[in-house]
Protein backbone atom coordinates (compact mmCIF):
# COMPACT_ATOMS: atom_id res chain seq x y z
CA UNK A 1 0.00 0.00 0.00
CA UNK A 2 2.61 2.55 1.12
CA UNK A 3 6.30 1.90 0.52
CA UNK A 4 9.17 4.04 1.69
CA UNK A 5 12.27 2.95 -0.24
CA UNK A 6 15.83 4.02 0.59
CA UNK A 7 14.55 7.48 1.48
CA UNK A 8 17.27 10.06 1.95
CA UNK A 9 16.88 13.77 2.52
CA UNK A 10 19.69 16.29 2.71
CA UNK A 11 19.04 19.97 3.35
CA UNK A 12 21.49 22.18 1.53
CA UNK A 13 21.88 25.87 1.92
CA UNK A 14 24.21 28.63 3.04
CA UNK A 15 27.20 26.29 2.79
CA UNK A 16 25.59 23.91 5.28
CA UNK A 17 24.85 20.33 4.53
CA UNK A 18 22.41 18.65 6.90
CA UNK A 19 21.52 15.04 6.37
CA UNK A 20 18.11 14.82 8.05
CA UNK A 21 17.37 11.25 6.94
CA UNK A 22 19.99 8.84 5.63
CA UNK A 23 18.29 5.65 4.55
CA UNK A 24 14.73 4.65 5.45
CA UNK A 25 12.98 1.61 4.07
CA UNK A 26 9.71 0.24 5.41
CA UNK A 27 6.20 -0.35 4.20
CA UNK A 28 2.61 -0.26 5.37
CA UNK A 29 -0.10 -2.70 4.37
CA UNK A 30 -3.55 -1.39 3.59
CA UNK A 31 -5.50 -0.79 6.77
CA UNK A 32 -2.47 -1.00 9.03
CA UNK A 33 -1.73 1.38 11.91
CA UNK A 34 2.02 1.86 12.15
CA UNK A 35 3.80 4.11 14.63
CA UNK A 36 7.19 5.59 13.84
CA UNK A 37 9.14 6.44 16.97
CA UNK A 38 12.56 7.96 17.26
CA UNK A 39 14.64 10.34 19.35
CA UNK A 40 14.06 14.05 18.87
CA UNK A 41 15.92 15.55 15.96
CA UNK A 42 16.02 12.30 14.00
CA UNK A 43 14.07 13.63 11.04
CA UNK A 44 10.61 12.27 11.81
CA UNK A 45 8.89 15.34 10.45
CA UNK A 46 11.08 15.22 7.34
CA UNK A 47 9.95 11.64 6.81
CA UNK A 48 6.30 12.58 7.16
CA UNK A 49 6.61 15.53 4.79
CA UNK A 50 8.23 13.29 2.18
CA UNK A 51 5.41 10.76 2.55
CA UNK A 52 2.83 13.55 2.34
CA UNK A 53 4.40 14.82 -0.87
CA UNK A 54 5.25 18.16 0.73
CA UNK A 55 9.01 17.60 0.42
CA UNK A 56 11.05 16.17 -2.40
CA UNK A 57 13.42 13.43 -1.19
CA UNK A 58 17.09 13.81 -2.15
CA UNK A 59 17.14 10.18 -3.22
CA UNK A 60 14.96 7.14 -2.78
CA UNK A 61 11.21 7.28 -3.17
CA UNK A 62 7.82 6.99 -1.59
CA UNK A 63 5.39 4.78 -3.47
CA UNK A 64 1.68 4.90 -2.71
CA UNK A 65 -0.60 2.33 -4.36
CA UNK A 66 2.07 1.70 -6.96
CA UNK A 67 2.40 5.39 -7.78
CA UNK A 68 5.51 7.34 -6.97
CA UNK A 69 4.71 10.32 -4.74
CA UNK A 70 5.83 13.60 -6.32
CA UNK A 71 3.31 15.96 -4.75
CA UNK A 72 0.50 15.74 -2.21
CA UNK A 73 -1.37 12.59 -3.34
CA UNK A 74 -5.17 12.72 -3.38
CA UNK A 75 -6.75 10.58 -0.69
CA UNK A 76 -4.09 11.40 1.87
CA UNK A 77 -5.00 13.44 4.95
CA UNK A 78 -2.48 15.00 7.30
CA UNK A 79 -2.76 16.02 10.96
CA UNK A 80 0.05 18.29 12.13
CA UNK A 81 1.41 18.81 15.61
CA UNK A 82 0.75 22.55 15.66
CA UNK A 83 -3.04 22.45 15.81
CA UNK A 84 -3.06 26.20 16.51
CA UNK A 85 -1.39 26.82 13.17
CA UNK A 86 -3.03 24.19 11.01
CA UNK A 87 -6.63 25.33 11.48
CA UNK A 88 -7.73 28.43 9.61
CA UNK A 89 -8.47 31.00 12.33
CA UNK A 90 -10.81 33.01 10.08
CA UNK A 91 -13.08 30.03 9.49
CA UNK A 92 -15.54 28.50 11.86
CA UNK A 93 -15.03 24.86 12.81
CA UNK A 94 -17.59 23.72 10.24
CA UNK A 95 -15.86 25.57 7.40
CA UNK A 96 -12.45 24.32 8.44
CA UNK A 97 -13.66 20.74 8.19
CA UNK A 98 -15.46 21.41 4.93
CA UNK A 99 -12.69 23.28 3.08
CA UNK A 100 -10.75 20.24 1.80
CA UNK A 101 -14.02 18.65 0.64
CA UNK A 102 -14.83 21.68 -1.47
CA UNK A 103 -11.79 20.86 -3.58
CA UNK A 104 -13.29 17.48 -4.46
CA UNK A 105 -15.42 18.27 -7.48
CA UNK A 106 -17.63 15.21 -7.35
CA UNK A 107 -18.82 15.74 -3.77
CA UNK A 108 -22.20 17.52 -3.70
CA UNK A 109 -23.08 20.22 -1.21
CA UNK A 110 -25.51 18.00 0.63
CA UNK A 111 -22.94 15.22 0.85
CA UNK A 112 -20.36 17.68 2.14
CA UNK A 113 -22.66 18.79 4.91
CA UNK A 114 -23.34 15.18 5.79
CA UNK A 115 -19.63 14.33 5.92
CA UNK A 116 -18.83 17.35 8.07
CA UNK A 117 -21.60 16.56 10.50
CA UNK A 118 -20.60 12.95 10.71
CA UNK A 119 -16.92 13.74 11.21
CA UNK A 120 -17.62 16.26 13.98
CA UNK A 121 -19.88 13.73 15.64
CA UNK A 122 -17.18 11.06 15.39
CA UNK A 123 -14.72 13.23 17.32
CA UNK A 124 -17.35 14.33 19.84
CA UNK A 125 -17.66 17.96 18.75
CA UNK A 126 -21.27 18.11 17.57
CA UNK A 127 -22.12 21.45 19.13
CA UNK A 128 -19.00 23.43 18.28
CA UNK A 129 -19.54 23.63 14.52
CA UNK A 130 -20.26 27.35 14.72
CA UNK A 131 -17.29 28.26 16.94
CA UNK A 132 -13.94 29.59 15.80
CA UNK A 133 -10.97 27.27 16.47
CA UNK A 134 -9.29 29.72 18.83
CA UNK A 135 -12.34 29.64 21.06
CA UNK A 136 -11.62 25.98 21.80
CA UNK A 137 -9.09 24.29 24.06
CA UNK A 138 -5.98 22.71 22.55
CA UNK A 139 -7.40 19.20 22.73
CA UNK A 140 -10.60 20.28 21.04
CA UNK A 141 -8.67 22.06 18.30
CA UNK A 142 -6.75 18.88 17.57
CA UNK A 143 -10.09 17.05 17.43
CA UNK A 144 -11.20 19.52 14.77
CA UNK A 145 -8.05 18.77 12.80
CA UNK A 146 -8.80 15.06 13.12
CA UNK A 147 -12.41 15.65 12.07
CA UNK A 148 -11.15 17.50 9.00
CA UNK A 149 -8.98 14.50 8.13
CA UNK A 150 -11.86 12.07 8.73
CA UNK A 151 -14.35 14.06 6.63
CA UNK A 152 -11.87 13.96 3.75
CA UNK A 153 -12.43 10.18 3.61
CA UNK A 154 -8.73 9.43 3.18
CA UNK A 155 -7.19 6.10 2.37
CA UNK A 156 -4.03 7.13 4.16
CA UNK A 157 -3.92 9.22 7.32
CA UNK A 158 -0.60 10.79 8.28
CA UNK A 159 -0.17 12.15 11.79
CA UNK A 160 2.89 14.11 12.86
CA UNK A 161 3.23 14.07 16.66
CA UNK A 162 -0.35 15.25 16.88
CA UNK A 163 -0.63 15.04 20.66
CA UNK A 164 2.78 16.37 21.68
CA UNK A 165 1.32 19.70 22.76
CA UNK A 166 -1.78 18.63 24.71
CA UNK A 167 -2.08 17.70 28.37
CA UNK A 168 -1.79 14.08 29.51
CA UNK A 169 -5.47 13.40 30.16
CA UNK A 170 -6.57 14.87 26.84
CA UNK A 171 -3.81 12.96 25.17
CA UNK A 172 -5.08 9.63 26.50
CA UNK A 173 -8.57 10.49 25.19
CA UNK A 174 -7.23 11.45 21.79
CA UNK A 175 -5.17 8.26 21.54
CA UNK A 176 -8.31 6.21 22.12
CA UNK A 177 -10.07 8.35 19.54
CA UNK A 178 -7.42 7.53 16.95
CA UNK A 179 -7.64 3.79 17.65
CA UNK A 180 -11.42 3.91 17.40
CA UNK A 181 -11.48 5.88 14.16
CA UNK A 182 -8.85 3.61 12.66
CA UNK A 183 -10.95 0.54 13.49
CA UNK A 184 -14.18 2.12 12.25
CA UNK A 185 -12.84 3.60 9.03
CA UNK A 186 -10.36 0.93 7.98
CA UNK A 187 -7.91 3.66 7.01
CA UNK A 188 -4.13 3.15 6.78
CA UNK A 189 -2.47 5.24 9.49
CA UNK A 190 1.14 6.36 9.77
CA UNK A 191 1.54 7.90 13.21
CA UNK A 192 4.75 9.68 14.10
CA UNK A 193 5.68 10.27 17.71
CA UNK A 194 8.65 10.66 20.04
CA UNK A 195 6.70 9.03 22.86
CA UNK A 196 7.48 5.32 23.28
CA UNK A 197 4.37 4.55 25.35
CA UNK A 198 2.18 6.22 22.79
CA UNK A 199 3.80 4.28 19.94
CA UNK A 200 3.29 0.92 21.64
CA UNK A 201 -0.20 1.72 22.87
CA UNK A 202 -1.45 2.87 19.46
CA UNK A 203 0.43 0.83 16.91
CA UNK A 204 0.00 -2.58 15.40
CA UNK A 205 3.62 -2.22 14.51
CA UNK A 206 6.36 0.15 15.68
CA UNK A 207 9.14 1.35 13.41
CA UNK A 208 12.05 2.52 15.55
CA UNK A 209 14.30 5.13 13.98
CA UNK A 210 17.90 5.69 14.98
CA UNK A 211 19.20 9.10 15.88
CA UNK A 212 20.79 11.15 13.12
CA UNK A 213 22.06 10.00 10.60
CA UNK A 214 18.69 8.31 10.54
CA UNK A 215 18.07 4.72 9.50
CA UNK A 216 15.42 2.19 10.53
CA UNK A 217 16.79 0.72 13.73
CA UNK A 218 14.18 -1.97 14.25
CA UNK A 219 10.59 -2.92 13.47
CA UNK A 220 8.46 -4.53 16.15
CA UNK A 221 5.05 -6.09 15.84
CA UNK A 222 2.81 -5.08 18.70
CA UNK A 223 0.95 -8.25 19.66
CA UNK A 224 -1.39 -6.61 22.11
CA UNK A 225 -5.13 -7.29 21.83
CA UNK A 226 -7.02 -5.15 19.34
CA UNK A 227 -9.25 -3.74 22.05
CA UNK A 228 -7.06 -1.48 24.14
CA UNK A 229 -7.75 0.88 26.99
CA UNK A 230 -5.45 2.93 29.11
CA UNK A 231 -6.28 1.21 32.38
CA UNK A 232 -5.66 -2.38 31.33
CA UNK A 233 -3.36 -2.19 28.32
CA UNK A 234 -0.78 -0.11 30.09
CA UNK A 235 -0.81 -2.54 33.02
CA UNK A 236 -0.39 -5.51 30.68
CA UNK A 237 3.06 -7.13 31.21
CA UNK A 238 3.37 -7.51 27.46
CA UNK A 239 2.92 -3.73 27.06
CA UNK A 240 5.70 -3.11 29.55
CA UNK A 241 7.95 -5.57 27.77
CA UNK A 242 7.37 -3.99 24.40
CA UNK A 243 8.00 -0.49 25.64
CA UNK A 244 11.18 -1.64 27.36
CA UNK A 245 12.27 -3.20 24.12
CA UNK A 246 11.59 -0.02 22.13
CA UNK A 247 13.37 1.98 24.81
CA UNK A 248 16.42 -0.27 24.61
CA UNK A 249 16.47 0.01 20.86
CA UNK A 250 16.41 3.80 21.04
CA UNK A 251 19.20 3.78 23.63
CA UNK A 252 21.19 1.39 21.46
CA UNK A 253 20.54 3.63 18.48
CA UNK A 254 22.01 6.57 20.35
CA UNK A 255 25.12 4.51 21.11
CA UNK A 256 25.18 3.39 17.50
CA UNK A 257 24.38 -0.31 17.63
CA UNK A 258 21.49 -2.75 17.89
CA UNK A 259 20.07 -4.87 20.65
CA UNK A 260 19.36 -7.68 18.23
CA UNK A 261 17.35 -10.86 18.70
CA UNK A 262 13.63 -11.39 18.87
CA UNK A 263 11.30 -9.89 21.42
CA UNK A 264 11.76 -11.64 24.72
CA UNK A 265 8.97 -14.03 25.76
CA UNK A 266 6.65 -12.85 28.53
CA UNK A 267 8.28 -12.87 31.94
CA UNK A 268 6.87 -12.75 35.47
CA UNK A 269 5.96 -9.30 36.66
CA UNK A 270 8.57 -9.09 39.44
CA UNK A 271 11.37 -9.30 36.93
CA UNK A 272 10.10 -6.36 34.96
CA UNK A 273 12.14 -3.17 35.12
Amino acid sequence: MLDVRALRKVYEGHGRHVEAVRDLTFSLDAGELVCVVGPSGCGKTTLLKCVAGLLEPTSGEVVLRGQRVTGPPPGTAVVFQEYGRSLFPWMRVRDNVELPLRQKKHVTKARRRELVEHALHAVGLDDTAGAYPWQLSGGMQQRVAIARAVAYEPEVLLMDEPFAAVDAQTRADLEDLVRRLWQELGVTVLFITHDIDEAVYLGERVVVLSSSPTVVQEQLTVDLPARRDHLHTRADPRFTQLRTRVYEEIQAAKRGGGVGGAVAPPQPLDKMP
Binding site: K49, A52, G53, L54, P72, P74, T76, A77, V78, F80, E82, R85, S86, F88, M91, L99, P100, R102, Q103, K104, R148, Y152
Partner: peptide, 22 residues
Protein backbone atom coordinates in the same frame (compact mmCIF):
# COMPACT_ATOMS: atom_id res chain seq x y z
CA UNK B 1 1.96 30.80 8.13
CA UNK B 2 4.04 27.88 6.85
CA UNK B 3 1.97 25.23 8.63
CA UNK B 4 -1.25 26.67 7.23
CA UNK B 5 0.28 26.77 3.76
CA UNK B 6 1.33 23.13 4.05
CA UNK B 7 -2.08 22.14 5.36
CA UNK B 8 -3.68 23.79 2.34
CA UNK B 9 -1.26 22.04 0.01
CA UNK B 10 -1.73 18.64 1.60
CA UNK B 11 -5.49 18.92 1.18
CA UNK B 12 -5.27 20.05 -2.43
CA UNK B 13 -6.36 23.64 -1.77
CA UNK B 14 -4.64 25.44 -4.63
CA UNK B 15 -5.14 28.14 -7.22
CA UNK B 16 -8.07 30.48 -6.66
CA UNK B 17 -9.30 28.53 -3.64
CA UNK B 18 -5.90 29.06 -2.01
CA UNK B 19 -6.08 32.78 -2.75
CA UNK B 20 -9.58 33.08 -1.43
CA UNK B 21 -9.38 30.86 1.63
CA UNK B 22 -5.74 31.17 2.65
Amino acid sequence: DSVLAETARAYGVGGLARLRHL
